[in-house]
């Protein structure tokens, strides 16, 4: 719990410093993308800290490559 809170704090701190910069240059689309990205990352980070298994992207690659490899062997 404490770890999750710490992670949230870090993310909020970063957002506080990044968003005004973007706002200054009137990049609204970027702010939206940034926020979505940050929320996504924060969620993953909190899941990770709480030992929730997260799918490994390499497994995905392996899964898609397997049929091709089988073809050759």
């Amino acid at each position: 719990m404490l770890k999750s809170l710490g992670i949230l704090l870090i993310f909020i701190a970063i957002a506080i410093f990044q968003i005004p910069q973007l706002a200054k240059e009137k990049m609204n689309k970027e702010i939206v993308i940034f926020s979505i990205f940050m929320v996504f990352t924060a969620v993953i980070a909190i899941l990770k800290v709480n030992d929730v298994p997260i799918p490994n992207p390499l497994e995905l690659i392996a899964y898609t490559l397997d049929p091709i490899l089988n073809l050759f062997s």
């Binding site: 990049m27 970027e30 990205f37 940050m38 990352t41 980070a45 990770k48 490994n56």
Partner: peptide, 27 residues
């Protein structure tokens, strides 16, 4: 791909995501 004005703001969130995945990618 997102067609945004500059990429700089993406570095921190993407960097953090990479750090998280770096522990997952090779268990």
């Amino acid at each position: 791909i997102l067609e945004v004005k500059n990429y700089h703001f993406l570095t921190i969130p993407m960097g953090m995501l990479t750090v998280i995945f770096s522990t997952i990618i090779y268990p």
